[in-house]
Nucleic acid binder design. Structure first.
Lengths: 187, 187
DNA sequence: GACGAAATGTTAGCCGCTAACATTTTCTTG
DNA sequence: CAAGAAAATGTTAGCGGCTAACATTTCGTC
C-alpha cells in the first residue's frame, strides 16, 4: 500500500530535518548538538546519522548536476572560457525546476551565517565544478583555464545565493541572473 | 642570549610543522592523527593545539591580506567589478614577496588532494574576500556585484594554485598570472 | 641561586562520527 | 492470519579532534 506520502523512513527524515533547522535557527548551527536534534525528533543519535551522513548534510545538499553539462555543451566554442561557462549556467538555470520555496531559503540562510558551512558548500560544489571543467575541456578549452573559469563561476553564484538568502527584496532567479551578469562582464 | 634562530617555542612549532607535513605526505592527511604528529615531534597532543588552533592550520595558513586592499584601491573605477578586482590582485601579487620556496608547495600539494582541506582553504579566503569587497564597495561598486566578483576572483586564483602544486612545469607566478588572464577575459 | 614567566605535561571530558550487534517494526507471502 | 524476510531503529563501545583546569618543568634574569 502507498497511502502515506512517504514511508516511515521518509517521515523520520523529514522530522529530523525540520527539528534540525529549527534548532539551527534558534540557537545557531555550532551550538546545536546532534544529540539535541535526535531528541527533538524523538529518535536516537545513531538514527540521525543513518539519514544524514554528517551534521552539515542537513543544510548542504547535493546539487543538480546533470543539466549543467548539456547546457554548457550547447554554447558556441568561440567564446572565452569564463564567458562560455557563464553562458552555460545561464541556460542550465533557466531549465531548472523552480526550487521548492521555503526550505531552500532556510538552509541557505543558516549557511550564510555559519563559516564552517560555507566551507561545506564549497566542498560540495566540487562535483559540479568537475562537470563544468570536463565539458569545457571537451570543447577544446585549455584544462587550466577551464578549472579557473569553473571555480570562479560557481563561487560567484554561491556568493549570490548567500547574499540573496539574507534579503527579502529580490527573487532567487534575479539574484542568480545578476551574478552571472557580473561574471560575464555585462555589468 | 639569542644564539638560536628562535626560542624554544619557535623550534617546537617548526618541529611540529615538519613532522606533520611529513606524515601527511606519507600516509595522507585524514589518516594522520594529531597524536601521531605530537609523538613524532616528541611532544604532547595538547602542545600541538597550543601551536596550531586546529589540525588543518598546519596546511592552511592565514593570507597576506593587507597589500590587497591598497592595490585594488589603485584601480580606475571605470572598469567592471570583476575586471577591477582582477586588476587589483594582479598589482598586489606583483608586490608580494617571493613565497618561501618549498614549504608552500608542500602545503598546497597536500591541500590539493584532500577535499576537506579545500574547504578549509575556502573558509580561510573569507577574510581576504571581505577586504576585496570593502574596497570595491568603497569605490562605488554595487555591494552584490562586489561580493560576486571578489568570490569569483579568489576562487579562480585558488583553483590555479591547487593546479600549480600538482605540476612541475610551471612557475607559481605564471600560474597565477594565467588565472588572472582567464578571469579577465584576456584569454 | 632564587624567582617569575613561559612552555609543556596531565587529566578529564564534550562532540562528531563509526562499527558491531540486538531489537523492533513493517512488508510480504503462503 | 501466521510466519519469516526485510527495513528501520536501538544499544554499546570506541576513535579522533578539540577544550578546560590545573600541575609541572624549563628558561631568562636579577
Amino acid at each position: 500500500m502507498e497511502s502515506e506520502v512517504g514511508g516511515r523512513r521518509a517521515r523520520t527524515r523529514a522530522r529530523l530535518l525540520d527539528c534540525a533547522l529549527d534548532l539551527f535557527e534558534r540557537q545557531g548551527y555550532e551550538q546545536t548538538t546532534v544529540a539535541q536534534i535526535a531528541e527533538a525528533a524523538g529518535v536516537t543519535e545513531m538514527t540521525f546519522f543513518r539519514h544524514f551522513a554528517a551534521k552539515d548534510r542537513v543544510v548542504v545538499e547535493d546539487p543538480y548536476d546533470p543539466l549543467i553539462a548539456d547546457a554548457v555543451a550547447a554554447q558556441p566554442r568561440t567564446l572565452t572560457p569564463l564567458v562560455r561557462a557563464v553562458a552555460g549556467l545561464r541556460t542550465a538555470w533557466a531549465q531548472l525546476p523552480e526550487p521548492q520555496s521555503q526550505t531552500v531559503r532556510r538552509r541557505v540562510r543558516i549557511a550564510a551565517v555559519t563559516p564552517s558551512l560555507r566551507a561545506a558548500i564549497a566542498a560540495n560544489n566540487a562535483t559540479t565544478e568537475q562537470i563544468l571543467v570536463d565539458q569545457l575541456v571537451a570543447d577544446g578549452t585549455d584544462p587550466r583555464s577551464a578549472r579557473v573559469a569553473a571555480a570562479a563561476t560557481l563561487a560567484g553564484i554561491t556568493a549570490a545565493l548567500l547574499d540573496w538568502s539574507q534579503r527579502d527584496d529580490i527573487a532567487l532567479t534575479d539574484a542568480v541572473a545578476a551574478a552571472l551578469d557580473t561574471l560575464d562582464g555585462r555589468r
